[in-house]
Amino acid sequence: MKAASILLVEDDHIIAANLQEQLEQQGYRITGHATNSDEAMALFQKERPDIALLDIELNGSTLDGIELSIALHTISPLPILFLSSHDKREFVERAKQAPMVQYVLKSAPIEQLLIALDTAFATFYARRPAVVASVPASSGSGCALYAAQDFFFVRQDYRHVRVEVADIRWIEAKEHAVKIVTDTKVIAFSVRLNSFLEQVPHPALMRTHRSWAVNTRHVVAYHRGRVMVRYREGTQEIPLSDKWRESFLSGLPNLRAD
């Protein structure tokens, strides 16, 4: 698991430094700072960030922020948040024409910026045809899940944490929450197991029990009521109930004898 990565495009070095410090304090990871569209395109190609913060007016740049957002989307679509020092109507209206973006003033407090980032994630993933729309995990939980095909973001206290499906070993239900286990970390998330699997419908994530699901890519053996999952330097036993046994086995590439 890792923090969501941000490409910051801002021609004012002082503003950029302040933004970077504030966002890193909130748990985000700044992949790079560009001052013009050429630098931004190069960083984007190299780092492939999860979201971009773009200044609309980039002095001395080939493209302004709005034109840059369109160029980035032609390479690989991503959530975009525009930054501007003023709310001129012409820029606001042009920003609305750009693909899947949000808009916030540079003078806005950090709380408003964090909300705008969250909205940018939610808007982007809700519109993606191959992606499950994000929904609040539970009433008042303060968490949300944004899921793509091979990864998802968990939002907790405005911080977006990226989890790769390939890293998951198993998922365990704990009352109204789930515990997502990887080789290096455990993250608790306030959502029911059924809802989690619906929001992250990855074929490798298979239910084995009312309270358990595993990543079949890490299954090393199964026998009767147990599934052995590769975990750190050894394995972990996960229960396999009769109710889920048939559907679980049907999802495994078993070799049949002649």
Score class of each variant (00 low, 15 high):
152 F>T: 02
135 V>L: 06
138 S>R: 15
124 F>K: 01
136 P>R: 01
141 S>R: 06
120 A>Y: 10
131 V>M: 06
123 T>E: 13
145 L>F: 09
134 S>Y: 04
133 A>Q: 11
160 H>L: 15
148 A>Y: 09
159 R>N: 12
123 T>N: 13
124 F>M: 02
135 V>S: 02
130 A>W: 08
142 G>T: 11
142 G>L: 09
160 H>A: 15
138 S>F: 12
128 R>I: 08
135 V>Y: 07
143 C>L: 07
159 R>K: 10
120 A>M: 12
158 Y>W: 10
121 F>T: 01
162 R>C: 10
121 F>R: 01
159 R>F: 03
133 A>T: 07
144 A>L: 03
146 Y>S: 02
163 V>E: 06
162 R>K: 14
162 R>P: 00
127 R>P: 00
158 Y>A: 13
159 R>M: 08
127 R>G: 04
129 P>H: 07
119 T>G: 09
163 V>W: 07
151 F>T: 13
143 C>S: 04
126 A>F: 01
143 C>I: 00
141 S>W: 05
139 S>L: 15
136 P>V: 04
143 C>P: 00
154 V>K: 03
164 E>N: 13
143 C>D: 03
131 V>K: 06
163 V>K: 03
128 R>N: 03
152 F>S: 02
123 T>K: 11
131 V>T: 07
156 Q>N: 12
143 C>H: 11
146 Y>M: 01
149 Q>P: 00
147 A>M: 06
131 V>C: 08
139 S>A: 09
125 Y>A: 02
160 H>F: 14
123 T>F: 12
140 G>L: 13
119 T>R: 14
141 S>P: 03
134 S>E: 03
150 D>N: 02
145 L>D: 04
149 Q>I: 13
128 R>P: 01
134 S>A: 09
159 R>L: 05
141 S>I: 04
138 S>I: 15
142 G>E: 08
122 A>F: 02
120 A>I: 10
120 A>Q: 12
137 A>Y: 00
158 Y>T: 12
142 G>Y: 10
119 T>F: 07
144 A>W: 05
144 A>E: 09
157 D>F: 15
155 R>S: 10
136 P>A: 03
147 A>V: 04
155 R>C: 09
164 E>W: 14
148 A>P: 00
162 R>D: 03
121 F>Y: 10
135 V>G: 05
164 E>C: 12
125 Y>L: 01
158 Y>R: 14
151 F>A: 15
152 F>W: 13
148 A>M: 14
138 S>Y: 12
144 A>N: 08
138 S>M: 15
